[in-house]
Design a protein around this nucleic acid. Structure first.
Length: 437
RNA sequence: GCGAUCGUAGCUCAGUUGGUUAGAGCACAAGAUUGUGGAUCUUGGGGUCGCGGGUUCAAAUCCCGUCGGUCGCCCCA
């Protein structure tokens, strides 16, 4: 039957699937709003140049790109950051600081599919522009943690690894490495967790073997897992920029501690976040079991707005992907079973009952209640079964007997108890019942 | 781009050394049931066995190709 197939890596959302997705989006929106972030949106299709500007061939290879009918080179957006930089950059002078924005959008990457990765996916993105100090990181890491906790996840389920590219840069500089060598070492550090010593192979190819003394200190540095260890390692080095970074670290960790979020955050200098544009703190959220890919990632990118043609504007941001996150919620049984339950299900006997029920059904719906009824006549037993399966809390019964007496029987489906209510008071009764909860 | 593995109903799968009209459970629908709940029973709809080619009297079954799913590698903005 299915002559046409969904394109590889693309997803369809049947109502049950969409219900789960909407549930996730709803809580993300709610959480971002409670932190005072404003929602924005932007085009899905962008000039190819926007992504070429800051990245290499590898990334271009994973873009859905083509030439449009006007001869423009365009690409489906693979991420939000360049777009939001352009938006903010274009009006930077007119926007009140701090600029706290979020969005939920779909993104596209032409990749091979794997667990938690497809060719299209949704991301929650949150960014703060115009704040150079760690106050921006405090706000964003708190938001990230709450975006996961809002679903019932706890510190048993996930944690945030916190690192600092800026610190790495200064530290490696203090060890006497120049910038190209520093970048090569950072690439090796990024891969070290997965590949072990082999991660340094590419460095050796470019620059010859890394000095054993330096390598030892790199290995020690990437094993740092606490602020105390960090302070101790840097104690012997006299460099004011390193001292200033340490002060930022203390402010950041103290603030998160004060919010009660210390248990979610782990210092981990082994994280450097592979590519390009991060310039300061970087962080990634993982599930504790470690059998899923990263849940979220972000960091500071103070140069990007300018690189994309805007003014100098410091920025921090992160993104949570929907696929890995949904896998985690399902694993932990935190995905609600019924997400579209009506408030009220009507049980109706014949045409007479139907005509009696319609005014109430419409009035309740107009008042904002979710009301369902069988479109066609069917046996009461079936209707009650349907009512029960729908997840509705109340059944309104319009039988011949009730209609004749001008009443409606209201059944509490959970308690299996019934009361009769004069027809004129149905809406009131329903409102009272449902508002009690 | 590379590798492994798998494609039979909406889902999970069975299908003998190749042999008549391809099966089950779940799900869906109808009835038993003309006023009370996740039960039971009966019945029903739904499949060009991913697609194409080959071998054969005969292919879901064997061979080749291809498309797709899943999981890794690369990459992960």
């Amino acid at each position: 039957m299915a002559t046409f197939q969904t394109l590889p890596g693309f997803r369809e959302f049947y109502p049950e699937d969409l219900a789960g997705r909407s549930h996730i989006f709803r809580l993300w929106r709610q959480t971002a709003a409670s932190f005072g972030f404003a929602e924005y949106d932007a085009p899905v299709l962008e000039p190819l140049e926007l992504y070429k500007a800051k990245s290499g061939d590898e990334i271009e290879a994973q873009l859905f790109s083509f030439t449009d009918k006007g001869g423009r080179e365009v690409a489906l957006r693979p991420e939000m950051t360049p777009t939001v930089c352009r938006l903010v950059g274009a009006r930077a002078n007119a926007l009140r600081r701090p600029i706290k924005w979020f969005s939920i959008g779909e993104f596209f990457r032409y990749e091979r599919m794997q667990k938690g990765r497809g060719r299209c996916f949704f991301q929650f993105n949150a960014d703060i522009f115009g704040e150079p100090g760690p106050e921006a990181e405090i706000e964003l890491i708190a938001l990230l943690v709450q975006c996961l906790c809002a679903f019932g996840l706890t510190e048993q389920d996930f944690y945030v690894r916190l690192s600092d590219r800026n610190l790495w840069f200064h530290y490696l500089g203090a060890l006497g490495l120049d910038e190209p060598r520093i970048r090569a070492v950072l690439t090796a550090v990024d891969r070290h967790e997965k590949h072990g010593d082999a991660a340094f192979a590419s460095y050796s190819e470019q620059f010859g073997p890394l000095d054993p003394g330096i390598k030892e200190r790199v290995m020690a540095f990437l094993s740092i897992r606490s602020l105390a260890a960090l302070e101790q390692t840097l104690a012997g080095i006299n460099d004011e920029r390193l001292a200033a970074r340490l002060a930022d670290w203390r402010r950041l960790l103290r603030a998160l501690e004060a919010m009660g979020l210390g248990r979610y955050v782990e210092v981990d200098l082994g994280v450097v976040r592979g590519l390009a544009y991060y310039t300061g703190f970087v962080f990634e959220a993982f599930d504790r079991k470690g059998d899923l890919r990263a849940l979220a990632g972000g960091g500071r990118y103070d140069d990007l707005v300018q690189k994309l043609g805007g003014p100098t504007l410091p920025a921090v941001g992160f993104a949570i992907g929907d696929m890995t996150f949904a896998l985690l919620l399902e694993q932990r049984g935190l995905m609600p079973k019924i997400l579209h339950a009506p408030d009220v299900f009507c049980v109706i006997d014949g045409e007479t009952g139907r005509l009696a029920a319609f005014p109430d059904i419409h009035a309740l719906r107009a008042a904002g209640f979710r009301v369902e009824y069988p479109l066609r006549d069917s046996a009461f037993g079936k209707q009650f079964k349907a009512a029960s399966e729908s997840g509705a809390r109340l059944a309104l019964i319009y039988g011949g007997d009730e209609v004749a007496r001008g009443v409606v029987k209201v059944r509490d489906l959970a308690q299996r108890s019934e009361v009769e209510v004069p027809k004129s008071q149905v809406a009131l009764h329903v409102r009272d019942f449902l508002s009690v909860r």
